[in-house]
């Protein structure tokens, strides 16, 4: 039973990170390889907020969420906006550069050592007993709840609001979207903002559950196979992909060898790229991926 709980928690983490990849890819066909770094930046923003502005955990997290929205918007406006209409490869390489830049900047600002964010905002990460034998941490529980809410919110937004529909429309045919008066810059900015927001949320919650250091950006890389297994442009797909990756990882760690944890997602990634490159629920035509 504890294994099942672990799988659910890890699924939530991967799913919350993966939906950031999906949002940006679905709308602009750009693969954001800086997503892991943006996620950890969210966690470091919490460090900054708690150190200077707010000491109450909830206030600090709320402020961090607002900052992450500003970060996402800035990334689009200052950097990715210039890439609109350029070849997709140029945009993807830009995100690689952004990732490296962010990583360096975060080490410069916050140092290479591990920080205990939970202690900084006096967050009580107590272990909660779900049943006699199953225990999860408070942060992990929050993670599951937040992932559920984010997915629910995103799906409702994409299918019921006009701007959500415009995001889906622009992803399907950007030229036609422009010809129907949809402002592509608004749509792309929205995608980047939502993506960075959900990523930062994941970063905050995962670092509350452990410690924070720059190398945790690798979680972003590990969540990428989850997004790809489901099909890069499908939100429900990302959720299922996250489940597949998380289940395999937890089971192999438990029954085979803990050292496998860093390898499993990428084994699945290679397998799916060979067998079904467009993923379980992705759009089949999109084979010219970068």
């Amino acid at each position: 039973m504890q294994i099942l709980a672990n799988i659910v928690v890890l699924t939530s983490l991967y799913a919350l990170v993966a939906c950031g990849y999906v949002l940006v890819y679905k709308v602009s066909r750009v693969l954001n390889l800086a997503h892991g770094e943006l996620m950890i930046l969210g966690a470091y923003l919490l460090v900054a907020t708690s150190a200077g502005i707010a000491s109450d955990p909830l206030a600090a997290i709320a402020l961090t969420a607002m900052f992450s929205i500003v970060v996402g918007l800035s990334v689009y406006l200052l950097l990715m906006r210039k890439m609109t209409g350029q070849p997709v490869l140029a945009a993807v390489l830009t995100t690689v550069a952004l990732g490296i830049l962010l990583r360096g900047a975060m080490v410069l600002i916050w140092g290479p050592q591990q920080l205990n964010v939970g202690a900084m905002i006096s967050f009580d990460n107590a272990s909660i007993a779900l049943t006699d034998s199953v225990r999860v941490s408070t942060a992990a529980l929050w993670l599951v709840v937040c992932t559920f809410l984010v997915y629910l919110g995103l799906l409702a937004f994409l299918h019921m609001s006009r701007w959500g529909m415009r995001m889906r429309a622009s992803g399907q045919n950007a030229l036609l979207a422009a010809q129907r008066g949809i402002n592509l810059h608004t749509v792309y900015a929205l995608a980047w903002t939502l993506s960075t927001f959900s990523g930062s949320l994941a970063g905050v919650l995962v670092t509350l559950d452990s410690r924070i250091d720059v190398n945790m950006a690798v979680i972003g890389l590990k969540a990428f196979p989850a997004a790809l297994v489901g099909g890069l442009d499908s939100l429900p797909g990302a959720l299922i992909g996250a489940g597949v990756i998380a289940a395999l990882e937890v089971l192999l760690i438990h029954y085979v060898n803990p050292l496998l944890s860093d390898v499993v997602p990428f084994l699945v990634l290679i397998a799916i790229l060979i067998v079904r490159p467009w993923g379980l629920y992705g759009t089949k035509e999109e084979l010219n991926r970068v």
Binding site: R162, R168, A169, Q172, L176, A177, Q179, R180, I182, N183
Partner: peptide, 25 residues
């Protein structure tokens, strides 16, 4: 000035009603 293009003239992943609703001017 509004164009009805030759190919790819509707958003295939959207419903008929959504195709009308996304239009923005």
């Amino acid at each position: 000035i509004v164009l009805v293009p030759e190919r790819d003239k509707v958003f295939t992943n959207l419903t008929v009603a959504e195709n009308l609703e996304v239009v923005s001017t």
